[in-house]
């Protein structure tokens, strides 16, 4: 099993967290939603797997390339 670090494609604020460590996700499923330019921007799982960790909290300011979550694929 490989793990993949999923990083922020943009800077913004963490709006919602939809998953917890241990949860299974399918490809293109939103794990975290950011808010930026008044838009809700989902950070999706690139492939089916299991969430290992969520590295941000709701309300956090995040910057581009910061790790958001880790996926086991």
């Amino acid at each position: 099993m490989a793990t993949k670090s999923i990083r922020c494609p943009i800077s913004g604020t963490v709006f919602q967290i939809h998953k917890a460590p241990g949860d299974s996700v399918v490809a293109k499923e939103a794990v975290v939603t950011l808010e930026c330019m008044k838009m809700e921007i989902p950070i999706e799982a690139p492939s089916t797997g299991r969430v290992v960790s969520i590295d941000v909290r709701e309300g956090d300011s995040v910057v581009k390339d910061q790790q958001v979550f880790v996926l086991e694929i």
Binding site: P9, I10, G12, C36, M37, K38, M39, I41, P42
Partner: peptide
């Protein structure tokens, strides 16, 4: 692409 800064 609205996924990136809402297209900003």
């Amino acid at each position: 692409d609205p996924y990136f800064y809402g297209g900003g």
